[in-house]
Amino acid sequence: MQLSNRLIKWLISGPPLVFLLIFFVAPSLIMIVTSFRLPGEFGGLAPLTIFSEHTSIDSGLTLETYQFFLSDWIYLEIFLKSFFIATLTTIICIAMAYPLALLIANSPRKFRNLMIMLVVLPFASNFLIRVYAWMIILGPESTLSHVINHILGVLGLEPVTLLFSPFAVLIGMVYVHLPFMILPLYTNLEKHDPILLDAAQDLGANRWQQFWCVTWPLSLPGIFSGSALVFIPVLGMFAIPDILGGTGDIMIGNLIKDQFLGTRDWPFGSTLSIMLTIAVLGATVFFTWLARSVMRSP
Protein backbone atom coordinates (compact mmCIF):
# COMPACT_ATOMS: atom_id res chain seq x y z
CA MET A 1 0.00 0.00 0.00
CA GLN A 2 2.72 2.39 1.07
CA LEU A 3 4.76 1.44 -1.96
CA SER A 4 1.94 1.88 -4.44
CA ASN A 5 1.14 5.33 -3.05
CA ARG A 6 4.71 6.44 -3.55
CA LEU A 7 4.68 4.91 -6.99
CA ILE A 8 1.56 6.91 -7.89
CA LYS A 9 3.14 10.08 -6.56
CA TRP A 10 6.14 9.59 -8.83
CA LEU A 11 4.00 8.58 -11.79
CA ILE A 12 2.04 11.83 -11.53
CA SER A 13 4.76 14.29 -10.63
CA GLY A 14 7.64 12.59 -12.47
CA PRO A 15 6.91 13.43 -16.13
CA PRO A 16 6.29 17.18 -15.66
CA LEU A 17 9.24 17.36 -13.28
CA VAL A 18 11.61 15.68 -15.74
CA PHE A 19 10.35 17.81 -18.63
CA LEU A 20 10.86 21.05 -16.70
CA LEU A 21 14.27 19.93 -15.44
CA ILE A 22 15.35 19.40 -19.05
CA PHE A 23 13.71 22.40 -20.70
CA PHE A 24 13.81 24.98 -17.94
CA VAL A 25 16.50 24.17 -15.36
CA ALA A 26 19.16 22.82 -17.72
CA PRO A 27 18.88 25.80 -20.14
CA SER A 28 19.17 28.21 -17.22
CA LEU A 29 22.32 26.45 -15.99
CA ILE A 30 23.76 26.43 -19.51
CA MET A 31 23.19 30.17 -19.67
CA ILE A 32 25.07 30.71 -16.41
CA VAL A 33 28.01 28.63 -17.67
CA THR A 34 27.98 30.43 -21.03
CA SER A 35 28.31 33.80 -19.31
CA PHE A 36 31.72 32.73 -17.97
CA ARG A 37 33.04 31.66 -21.35
CA LEU A 38 34.64 33.53 -24.22
CA PRO A 39 33.05 34.30 -27.57
CA GLY A 40 34.28 32.39 -30.60
CA GLU A 41 35.97 34.09 -33.50
CA PHE A 42 32.94 33.76 -35.76
CA GLY A 43 30.27 34.15 -33.12
CA GLY A 44 29.06 31.48 -30.74
CA LEU A 45 31.64 30.24 -28.25
CA ALA A 46 35.35 29.64 -28.07
CA PRO A 47 36.01 25.92 -27.52
CA LEU A 48 36.35 24.78 -23.94
CA THR A 49 39.88 23.52 -23.22
CA ILE A 50 38.68 21.52 -20.23
CA PHE A 51 37.32 18.78 -22.47
CA SER A 52 40.36 18.47 -24.71
CA GLU A 53 43.12 18.50 -22.08
CA HIS A 54 43.23 17.35 -18.51
CA THR A 55 44.62 20.57 -17.13
CA SER A 56 42.29 22.26 -14.72
CA ILE A 57 44.35 25.45 -14.66
CA ASP A 58 43.08 26.85 -17.92
CA SER A 59 39.45 25.81 -17.98
CA GLY A 60 38.35 28.40 -20.51
CA LEU A 61 36.10 30.04 -17.96
CA THR A 62 36.62 33.73 -17.25
CA LEU A 63 35.02 36.72 -15.65
CA GLU A 64 35.84 38.78 -18.71
CA THR A 65 32.28 39.48 -19.83
CA TYR A 66 31.32 40.69 -16.37
CA GLN A 67 34.33 43.01 -16.32
CA PHE A 68 33.36 44.22 -19.77
CA PHE A 69 29.82 44.92 -18.57
CA LEU A 70 31.08 47.03 -15.68
CA SER A 71 33.82 48.74 -17.65
CA ASP A 72 31.52 50.54 -20.03
CA TRP A 73 29.11 53.06 -18.58
CA ILE A 74 26.72 52.66 -21.53
CA TYR A 75 25.46 49.24 -20.37
CA LEU A 76 24.66 50.43 -16.86
CA GLU A 77 22.99 53.44 -18.43
CA ILE A 78 20.70 51.20 -20.50
CA PHE A 79 19.86 49.21 -17.37
CA LEU A 80 19.00 52.39 -15.50
CA LYS A 81 16.91 53.62 -18.43
CA SER A 82 15.01 50.32 -18.50
CA PHE A 83 14.32 50.66 -14.77
CA PHE A 84 13.10 54.20 -15.37
CA ILE A 85 10.74 53.15 -18.17
CA ALA A 86 9.43 50.23 -16.11
CA THR A 87 8.79 52.52 -13.13
CA LEU A 88 7.05 55.13 -15.26
CA THR A 89 4.90 52.47 -16.98
CA THR A 90 3.91 51.07 -13.56
CA ILE A 91 2.91 54.49 -12.23
CA ILE A 92 0.83 55.33 -15.32
CA CYS A 93 -0.82 51.90 -15.13
CA ILE A 94 -1.76 52.48 -11.48
CA ALA A 95 -3.24 55.88 -12.35
CA MET A 96 -5.32 54.44 -15.19
CA ALA A 97 -6.28 51.14 -13.59
CA TYR A 98 -7.38 52.47 -10.21
CA PRO A 99 -10.51 54.40 -11.25
CA LEU A 100 -11.69 51.56 -13.47
CA ALA A 101 -11.02 48.84 -10.88
CA LEU A 102 -12.79 50.92 -8.23
CA LEU A 103 -15.81 51.45 -10.44
CA ILE A 104 -16.06 47.76 -11.32
CA ALA A 105 -15.71 46.71 -7.68
CA ASN A 106 -18.52 49.08 -6.74
CA SER A 107 -20.84 48.07 -9.55
CA PRO A 108 -23.77 45.76 -8.98
CA ARG A 109 -22.54 42.18 -8.83
CA LYS A 110 -24.31 41.10 -12.02
CA PHE A 111 -22.36 43.65 -14.11
CA ARG A 112 -18.96 42.97 -12.58
CA ASN A 113 -18.04 39.83 -14.51
CA LEU A 114 -19.05 41.46 -17.78
CA MET A 115 -16.97 44.56 -17.01
CA ILE A 116 -13.93 42.44 -16.12
CA MET A 117 -14.41 40.39 -19.25
CA LEU A 118 -14.32 43.63 -21.27
CA VAL A 119 -10.92 44.33 -19.71
CA VAL A 120 -9.59 40.86 -20.49
CA LEU A 121 -10.81 40.55 -24.08
CA PRO A 122 -8.44 43.02 -25.81
CA PHE A 123 -5.70 41.41 -23.77
CA ALA A 124 -6.54 38.12 -25.45
CA SER A 125 -5.63 39.43 -28.87
CA ASN A 126 -2.13 38.98 -30.23
CA PHE A 127 0.59 41.00 -28.54
CA LEU A 128 2.08 42.14 -31.86
CA ILE A 129 -1.29 43.30 -33.12
CA ARG A 130 -1.77 45.49 -30.06
CA VAL A 131 1.63 47.08 -30.62
CA TYR A 132 1.00 47.42 -34.35
CA ALA A 133 -2.26 49.27 -33.64
CA TRP A 134 -0.22 52.06 -32.08
CA MET A 135 2.00 52.20 -35.16
CA ILE A 136 -1.13 53.19 -37.10
CA ILE A 137 -2.36 55.66 -34.47
CA LEU A 138 0.98 57.39 -33.97
CA GLY A 139 2.17 57.19 -37.58
CA PRO A 140 3.16 60.41 -39.38
CA GLU A 141 0.07 60.31 -41.63
CA SER A 142 -2.40 59.50 -38.84
CA THR A 143 -5.22 61.79 -37.78
CA LEU A 144 -3.73 62.12 -34.30
CA SER A 145 -0.36 63.27 -35.68
CA HIS A 146 -2.09 65.77 -37.95
CA VAL A 147 -4.22 67.19 -35.13
CA ILE A 148 -1.34 67.49 -32.68
CA ASN A 149 0.98 69.08 -35.24
CA HIS A 150 -1.77 71.46 -36.33
CA ILE A 151 -2.23 72.63 -32.73
CA LEU A 152 1.54 72.95 -32.31
CA GLY A 153 1.65 74.93 -35.57
CA VAL A 154 -1.02 77.32 -34.34
CA LEU A 155 0.98 77.81 -31.13
CA GLY A 156 4.06 78.49 -33.24
CA LEU A 157 5.91 75.36 -32.18
CA GLU A 158 7.92 72.83 -34.21
CA PRO A 159 5.98 69.77 -35.41
CA VAL A 160 6.77 66.50 -33.62
CA THR A 161 6.97 62.89 -34.76
CA LEU A 162 5.02 60.65 -32.39
CA LEU A 163 6.14 57.29 -33.71
CA PHE A 164 9.68 55.99 -33.07
CA SER A 165 10.04 58.00 -29.88
CA PRO A 166 10.29 57.27 -26.12
CA PHE A 167 6.70 58.52 -25.89
CA ALA A 168 5.51 55.81 -28.30
CA VAL A 169 7.41 53.15 -26.34
CA LEU A 170 5.75 54.27 -23.12
CA ILE A 171 2.23 54.22 -24.63
CA GLY A 172 2.85 50.75 -26.04
CA MET A 173 4.12 49.48 -22.68
CA VAL A 174 1.11 50.89 -20.81
CA TYR A 175 -1.33 49.55 -23.39
CA VAL A 176 0.04 46.01 -23.33
CA HIS A 177 0.38 45.74 -19.55
CA LEU A 178 -2.66 47.67 -18.26
CA PRO A 179 -4.86 44.58 -17.65
CA PHE A 180 -2.13 43.14 -15.40
CA MET A 181 -2.74 46.09 -13.09
CA ILE A 182 -6.54 46.21 -13.34
CA LEU A 183 -7.14 42.55 -12.44
CA PRO A 184 -5.24 42.27 -9.11
CA LEU A 185 -6.45 45.72 -8.10
CA TYR A 186 -10.05 44.72 -8.76
CA THR A 187 -9.59 41.42 -6.89
CA ASN A 188 -8.40 43.44 -3.90
CA LEU A 189 -11.03 46.21 -4.05
CA GLU A 190 -13.84 43.72 -4.47
CA LYS A 191 -13.06 42.22 -1.05
CA HIS A 192 -13.38 45.52 0.84
CA ASP A 193 -16.20 45.51 3.37
CA PRO A 194 -18.51 48.50 2.72
CA ILE A 195 -19.24 48.57 6.45
CA LEU A 196 -15.82 50.17 6.94
CA LEU A 197 -16.84 53.14 4.80
CA ASP A 198 -20.10 53.42 6.73
CA ALA A 199 -18.15 53.53 9.95
CA ALA A 200 -15.81 56.21 8.54
CA GLN A 201 -18.81 58.25 7.44
CA ASP A 202 -20.46 57.93 10.83
CA LEU A 203 -17.24 59.21 12.38
CA GLY A 204 -17.49 62.31 10.19
CA ALA A 205 -15.16 61.51 7.30
CA ASN A 206 -16.04 63.09 3.96
CA ARG A 207 -15.72 61.26 0.65
CA TRP A 208 -12.06 62.07 0.12
CA GLN A 209 -11.15 61.22 3.69
CA GLN A 210 -13.00 57.94 3.36
CA PHE A 211 -10.97 57.18 0.25
CA TRP A 212 -7.56 58.24 1.58
CA CYS A 213 -7.93 56.78 5.05
CA VAL A 214 -9.84 53.57 4.30
CA THR A 215 -9.96 52.42 0.68
CA TRP A 216 -6.46 53.51 -0.45
CA PRO A 217 -4.42 51.93 2.39
CA LEU A 218 -6.44 48.71 2.14
CA SER A 219 -5.81 48.52 -1.61
CA LEU A 220 -2.01 48.78 -1.34
CA PRO A 221 -1.40 44.99 -1.47
CA GLY A 222 -3.39 44.90 -4.73
CA ILE A 223 -1.32 47.79 -6.10
CA PHE A 224 1.92 46.06 -5.22
CA SER A 225 1.02 42.72 -6.78
CA GLY A 226 -0.18 44.56 -9.89
CA SER A 227 3.06 46.56 -9.93
CA ALA A 228 5.14 43.38 -9.89
CA LEU A 229 3.09 42.00 -12.81
CA VAL A 230 3.69 45.18 -14.83
CA PHE A 231 7.23 46.10 -13.79
CA ILE A 232 8.88 42.72 -14.41
CA PRO A 233 7.74 42.06 -17.99
CA VAL A 234 8.37 45.70 -18.95
CA LEU A 235 11.93 45.44 -17.65
CA GLY A 236 12.72 42.57 -20.02
CA MET A 237 10.70 43.77 -23.02
CA PHE A 238 12.43 44.02 -26.38
CA ALA A 239 9.65 43.96 -28.96
CA ILE A 240 7.94 47.25 -28.04
CA PRO A 241 11.09 49.42 -28.13
CA ASP A 242 12.04 47.50 -31.26
CA ILE A 243 8.78 48.31 -33.07
CA LEU A 244 7.67 51.66 -31.62
CA GLY A 245 10.98 53.16 -30.47
CA GLY A 246 13.66 55.00 -32.36
CA THR A 247 17.31 53.99 -32.55
CA GLY A 248 18.08 55.59 -29.19
CA ASP A 249 15.23 53.97 -27.28
CA ILE A 250 16.80 50.57 -26.66
CA MET A 251 16.32 48.69 -23.38
CA ILE A 252 17.99 45.66 -21.75
CA GLY A 253 15.93 43.30 -23.89
CA ASN A 254 17.15 44.87 -27.14
CA LEU A 255 20.73 44.65 -25.92
CA ILE A 256 20.28 40.93 -25.18
CA LYS A 257 18.57 40.29 -28.51
CA ASP A 258 21.42 41.96 -30.39
CA GLN A 259 24.01 39.75 -28.68
CA PHE A 260 22.24 36.59 -29.81
CA LEU A 261 20.88 37.50 -33.22
CA GLY A 262 23.10 40.42 -34.23
CA THR A 263 26.72 40.30 -33.12
CA ARG A 264 26.41 36.68 -31.93
CA ASP A 265 28.35 37.32 -28.74
CA TRP A 266 26.76 34.58 -26.64
CA PRO A 267 28.83 35.01 -23.45
CA PHE A 268 28.05 38.71 -23.22
CA GLY A 269 24.37 38.06 -24.05
CA SER A 270 24.27 35.49 -21.24
CA THR A 271 25.91 37.93 -18.84
CA LEU A 272 23.28 40.53 -19.70
CA SER A 273 20.51 37.93 -19.24
CA ILE A 274 21.87 37.04 -15.82
CA MET A 275 22.00 40.72 -14.86
CA LEU A 276 18.36 40.97 -15.98
CA THR A 277 17.48 37.88 -13.90
CA ILE A 278 19.11 39.47 -10.85
CA ALA A 279 17.16 42.69 -11.48
CA VAL A 280 13.91 40.71 -11.79
CA LEU A 281 14.61 38.79 -8.58
CA GLY A 282 15.42 42.06 -6.84
CA ALA A 283 12.15 43.60 -8.04
CA THR A 284 10.18 40.51 -6.92
CA VAL A 285 11.75 40.61 -3.44
CA PHE A 286 11.11 44.36 -3.24
CA PHE A 287 7.40 44.13 -4.15
CA THR A 288 6.85 41.12 -1.86
CA TRP A 289 8.53 43.01 0.96
CA LEU A 290 6.38 46.09 0.29
CA ALA A 291 3.18 44.05 0.29
CA ARG A 292 4.17 42.29 3.53
CA SER A 293 5.13 45.46 5.36
CA VAL A 294 1.81 47.03 4.38
CA MET A 295 -0.10 43.98 5.58
CA ARG A 296 1.60 44.14 8.98
CA SER A 297 1.52 47.85 9.73
CA PRO A 298 -2.19 48.33 10.55
Binding site: P27, I232, F260, S270
Partner: peptide, 15 residues
Amino acid sequence: LAMPEILLGVSLLLF
Protein backbone atom coordinates in the same frame (compact mmCIF):
# COMPACT_ATOMS: atom_id res chain seq x y z
CA LEU B 1 5.29 32.56 -16.06
CA ALA B 2 6.71 35.15 -13.68
CA MET B 3 9.88 36.08 -15.52
CA PRO B 4 10.41 38.09 -18.69
CA GLU B 5 9.89 35.81 -21.69
CA ILE B 6 13.19 36.79 -23.25
CA LEU B 7 15.09 34.90 -20.53
CA LEU B 8 13.40 31.60 -21.35
CA GLY B 9 13.83 32.24 -25.07
CA VAL B 10 17.52 32.98 -24.85
CA SER B 11 18.38 30.14 -22.47
CA LEU B 12 16.48 27.64 -24.63
CA LEU B 13 18.34 28.89 -27.71
CA LEU B 14 21.68 28.26 -25.99
CA PHE B 15 20.53 24.87 -24.75
